[in-house]
Design a protein around this nucleic acid. Structure first.
Lengths: 228, 228
DNA sequence: CGCGGCTTTGATGTTCATCAAGTAAAGTGG
DNA sequence: CCACTTTACTTGATGAACATCAAAGCCGCG
């Protein structure tokens, strides 16, 4: 029982597992699996039964769903230590959204029953979960509403700033998704996303080398993001 | 201590307060306030400090926020027993959204600290909250994504079906909001919302008597809602 | 009964999707 | 490693969808 548990030092512990005692962290460790997904691989499909509490340890994933007309609608793209087994994990039987890796990703999966059992016994832990779930959902809602209020130019600018500020924290980065995926994310046509990126390039706001984007003029991009 | 507590029979008890014992329900009763808001009155503004756990007992409310360009963006319109002190109540200090009554409404308000205290001691109760919060958030996300994927005609059809099916459960009802508010909800211009309603009327899909709407041909409306 | 806000309709212009055709890039199999 | 195939990207031209503007009708309220 005194063997080492790597969960003890997991960064995620401070986010929702801070309030577990040693015994619980130990059995957490026994109940978890770490899974590697390569770029492009699907972590789960919408409609799959929810049996695991999953979160992203490293990499990058996209949440998406199929629309009635068969196209793909990207809900959000999210980085480590946000839930992956979004959104409905504590309210539904089945996933409402698919999740796929857009970069090589490591997912930590814990049996949902186990999480629920601990939460029932430990109100503080349950409240930690509640707070985290709220935060994640709130982010998605805010982002979706933010995007909705903008026009084409504003949306493309927003996405570039999102990757730069929220995901990579750097002015130069590799786009982890295709132009089409960006289009599915912001609800515009692929051709117009590309056109807008070209326009930004012509105006000297960004530089493009294939998948690599460099933001040259952050403040102008911010202005464009604030509506159009 | 054996005086009657009306909370005991409140319909909301079965939704999240089912797992409280008598003592807790009693002190819940002592800690709550019921507030009446007239149509048009604001229940709280975005940016206000969150101190109460609030839910709608009767009536109808809209969640909304101001966009950067100063317009109003309606997040959702929600009926009794959904949270009003949405969305960030367990994760933020301040409201991210305003809430206003669109019909005369009764709101039950309980000190948030009190709710948190109970949740910390009672994991089952906390899990009930978690489940309910997830469900409410999920609904908002799904609705926002559903609206986003539709065109003008589809959005107007969707809203009519939403009021008819989700809110009023009847084919003939009084619109609780102005045309402009519908426009702010579905992200289209007021003029085009009106035009589309007129078109539906001309085609015999609905009948309009001022604020009163009668849905004549549900199935055609459903077809229009499924994309355009 | 007159004023202001909500509603309606038409005309005009902008924004954006779609289509098409071509180029670059990235797999695939020999 | 090269030829081949496929998939992603790019750009222009066209038309559809939608916003905006303006003018008029309606309705409630003081």
């Amino acid at each position: 029982m005194d063997r080492n548990c790597i969960c003890e030092n997991c960064e995620f512990r401070n986010i929702v597992f801070a309030l577990l005692d040693e015994k619980d962290v130990q059995s957490l460790c026994d109940n978890k699996e770490e899974l590697l997904f390569r770029k492009g691989e699907v972590i789960h499909h919408e409609g799959d039964k929810i049996t695991y509490f999953k979160y992203l340890k490293s990499g990058l994933v996209k949440l998406y769903r199929k629309t009635t007309s068969g196209e793909e609608q990207v809900v959000t793209i999210t980085k480590p230590f946000e839930f992956v087994s979004n959104i409905s994990i504590f309210s539904e039987e089945k996933y409402g959204y698919s999740v796929a890796a857009v970069e090589d990703s490591v997912v930590c999966a814990i049996k949902l029953d186990f999480i629920k059992k601990i939460a029932l016994e430990n109100g503080a832990f349950a409240m930690g979960l509640l707070s985290k779930v709220s935060k994640v959902n709130e982010k998605i809602i805010t982002q979706t509403l933010d995007i909705r209020q903008k026009n084409l130019v504003g949306r493309v600018a927003y996405i570039l700033l999102y990757f730069s500020n929220e995901i990579y924290s750097t002015r130069i980065f590799d786009l982890p998704v295709s132009r089409k995926e960006i289009a599915d994310f912001i609800g515009m046509s692929t051709a117009n996303v590309i056109r807008t990126l070209s326009d930004f390039k012509k105006e000297g706001i960004i530089r493009i080398y294939g998948k690599t984007i460099e933001i040259v003029d952050v403040s102008r991009l911010e202005i464009m993001s604030r509506k159009g």
